[in-house]
Lab assay of single mutants.
Amino acid sequence: DFYRCHTCNTTDRNAICVNCIKKCHQGHDVEFIRHDRFFCDCGAGT
């Protein structure tokens, strides 16, 4: 499962994972996106 962060203006080409929300995007306006054509390269392994 992935998310888009409207606060940081993520686009259709990138998304964030749950670990990104916990570490970098906590309290931001995020939108849940189940699956799409992207991956998270944060290195958290999710």
Rank of each mutant, 00 (worst) to 15 (best):
D1R: 02
D1N: 15
F2C: 10
F2V: 03
F2D: 01
Y3M: 04
Y3D: 03
Y3R: 01
Y3P: 04
R4E: 04
R4L: 11
R4H: 04
R4T: 13
C5W: 00
C5R: 02
H6V: 11
H6S: 10
T7P: 00
T7E: 04
T7N: 03
T7R: 02
T7G: 02
C8E: 02
C8W: 01
C8P: 01
C8L: 00
C8M: 00
C8V: 00
N9F: 12
N9A: 11
N9R: 13
N9P: 11
T10H: 11
T10S: 12
T10K: 07
T10M: 15
T11Y: 06
T11H: 14
T11A: 07
T11P: 07
T11N: 11
T11F: 04
T11D: 14
D12Y: 07
D12F: 08
D12L: 06
D12R: 07
D12V: 14
D12I: 09
D12W: 03
D12E: 11
R13W: 07
R13V: 11
N14L: 04
N14S: 07
N14V: 10
A15C: 05
A15R: 07
I16F: 13
I16L: 06
C17D: 02
C17E: 01
C17W: 00
C17R: 01
C17I: 01
V18Y: 10
V18E: 15
V18H: 15
V18Q: 15
V18T: 14
V18S: 15
V18D: 08
N19L: 07
N19T: 07
N19W: 04
N19Q: 15
N19R: 11
N19C: 04
N19K: 05
C20A: 01
C20D: 03
C20S: 01
I21N: 04
I21A: 09
I21C: 05
I21W: 06
K22D: 05
K22P: 03
K22C: 01
K22R: 11
K22V: 05
K22N: 10
K22Q: 15
K23D: 13
K23P: 02
K23C: 06
C24S: 15
H25T: 01
H25E: 00
H25K: 02
H25Q: 03
H25R: 01
H25M: 02
Q26N: 08
Q26W: 06
Q26Y: 04
Q26A: 00
Q26L: 09
Q26S: 10
G27I: 06
G27C: 06
G27T: 08
G27L: 04
G27M: 03
G27Y: 00
H28A: 02
H28Q: 03
H28K: 02
H28I: 01
H28S: 01
H28R: 02
H28P: 01
D29S: 09
D29M: 05
D29T: 08
D29I: 06
D29G: 02
D29A: 09
D29K: 13
D29H: 12
V30S: 06
V30D: 04
V30W: 07
V30F: 09
V30E: 02
V30N: 01
V30T: 10
E31K: 06
E31P: 02
E31S: 10
F32R: 14
F32S: 15
F32H: 10
F32C: 14
I33P: 02
I33R: 09
I33K: 01
I33E: 13
I33C: 11
I33N: 01
R34L: 10
R34A: 12
R34V: 06
R34D: 15
R34Q: 15
R34I: 09
R34S: 09
R34K: 14
H35Y: 08
H35Q: 15
H35L: 14
H35A: 12
H35D: 15
D36W: 06
D36R: 09
R37E: 15
R37F: 06
R37C: 11
R37S: 12
R37L: 10
R37H: 06
F38Y: 14
F38T: 10
F38E: 11
F38A: 13
F38S: 11
F39M: 11
F39K: 13
F39C: 13
F39E: 15
F39H: 14
F39T: 13
F39R: 15
C40S: 05
C40T: 03
C40W: 02
C40E: 05
D41W: 02
D41G: 08
D41Y: 04
D41V: 11
D41H: 06
D41T: 07
C42V: 01
C42Q: 03
G43S: 10
G43W: 06
G43N: 06
G43T: 13
G43E: 12
A44V: 11
A44S: 12
A44H: 14
A44L: 09
A44N: 06
G45V: 09
G45L: 10
G45M: 07
G45D: 10
G45R: 08
G45P: 12
T46L: 15
T46V: 03
T46S: 15
T46I: 13
T46P: 06
